[in-house]
Nucleic acid binder design. Structure first.
Lengths: 234, 234
DNA sequence: TGCGCGACATTTGCATGCAAAGCAGGAGGT
DNA sequence: ACCTCCTGCTTTGCATGCAAATGTCGCGCA
């Protein structure tokens, strides 16, 4: 169940691809009933959408959709900022700091995936510090929805370096318990990140559209729609 | 499927009560599989929780839990306020205004349920005006989670009258496209409402605890565990 | 009479079977 | 040659059956 979610969140299943029940069943050795239940949950989380009698499709988000989610994420972190600064414990701060150090290490080594996960972890932990369970839950769910898209942003090394520097300031704001400052820093941090990410996403989108139009109309989409279903067993 | 959700959201199924599959099946004439899928969705939405081999129980929120959700709701409306004011169309405003007029009518007639639903509708529509689909979705889901608890607040007639008056100002702020003002008005509106609601909830809670301890320890919980039983109002 | 233990019944979790709805490919007509 | 319709296959949605786990009740014993 978690594995399917990971498959989608991590981006192994291309966006827009159709997920055949049979494929997953055989691949994961699980019955159809629990799989269907998992699908329903994933649909509720917005990761896939189930169209009646046609199966499950990985939700495909446009840059505009992602931007909408980013707005929400910024808002949620904004809600979290002041309570987080007010309530953060020593242990929590050290945990975040530890992630931060490991993250900088990843940056030094050029480990994008490692960096990305630690980055997510840090932001989640900051939100968690607010001690608001629903807030944490929602934040986590929305991060999962857009994670695969945000990955694109830090491929730009200048932006990546800037992000690390911004994180330094964020950490300092937490240490000094400067709630409003933290909120503003987070807001700007995400805004900057998103600006670059959006560029990359739109460039990719344009490239895809061009290649699709160039070779054959809609063929690209069709291929990814067969998707997970490996070319039928003989 | 929607009917089950309504059953829970509306509060017909008391919080903490166990929901027997069989009961719902017979009552609604639906198979077990779709019901289980519905349960999984409701669990994902946080309306019920499924404990392994023991079935589904309606999620019971403490006043503190509700307060956490209220904080999130205020934050979400805060995110929505400025875009909503910036983008609201004439048609949208008229729709809200229409609800507002109907709502005032409900207040005049003392129709609490009607008032409540229109109130929910208005707030939802304001959020919807921001044109942020994920925002609207999350807001709606969280409202559903705490709706039954918020109902308690407006039983106090002074608070109810004040709420109506606050809504007048809110409407004016939208009309005048005053984003920051709208955010502040909404925030105060909810804070005021919640203060009263929390009082009522805690009073009810204390009363329940007293009656339970007075008659017999744990008996109340046992009775509600027998099924969809609604022993709340004797 | 109170308490502990064992068997029963109920309920859930999962797998599988059957029917319906789409979709694809092919044949026939214009 | 293209379009249209038809037939077959694949896939999904739902119902039911079976096994495991848990709560409950009754009985025996101290």
């Amino acid at each position: 169940m978690e594995r399917i979610r990971d498959l989608i969140v991590s981006g192994e299943l291309p966006a827009g691809s159709r997920i055949a029940e049979r494929t997953i069943i055989e691949q994961m050795g699980v019955g159809r009933t629990p799989l269907r239940e998992a699908f329903k949950i994933l649909e509720a989380e917005g990761l896939i959408s189930i169209v009646p009698n046609r199966g499950a499709v990985v939700t495909q988000l446009t840059p505009t959709d992602v931007e909408a989610v980013m707005t929400v994420l910024i808002g949620l972190e904004g809600v979290a900022s002041e309570p987080a600064c007010a309530q953060v414990t020593q242990a929590q701060f050290m945990s975040i700091e530890n992630d931060h150090l490991k993250m900088m290490d990843c940056h030094r080594r050029g480990d994008l995936m490692g960096y990305f996960h630690l980055n997510q972890s840090i932001h989640q932990k900051i939100v968690d510090c607010a001690g608001n369970a629903p807030l944490s839950r929602i934040y986590k769910a929305e991060c999962a929805r857009v994670g695969r898209y945000r990955l694109a942003g830090n491929r730009n090394s200048a932006r990546w370096a800037a992000a690390v520097s911004e994180h330094e300031q964020i950490l300092a704001a937490i240490r000094d318990r400067e709630g409003p400052l933290l909120r503003e820093l987070l807001r700007v941090h995400h805004l900057n990140g998103w600006r670059k990410t959006r560029e990359v996403l739109e460039a990719e989108l344009a490239a895809n559209a061009r290649s699709a139009a160039g070779s054959r109309g809609g063929q690209e989409r069709k291929r990814s729609a067969t998707g997970v279903s490996k070319p039928r067993s003989p």
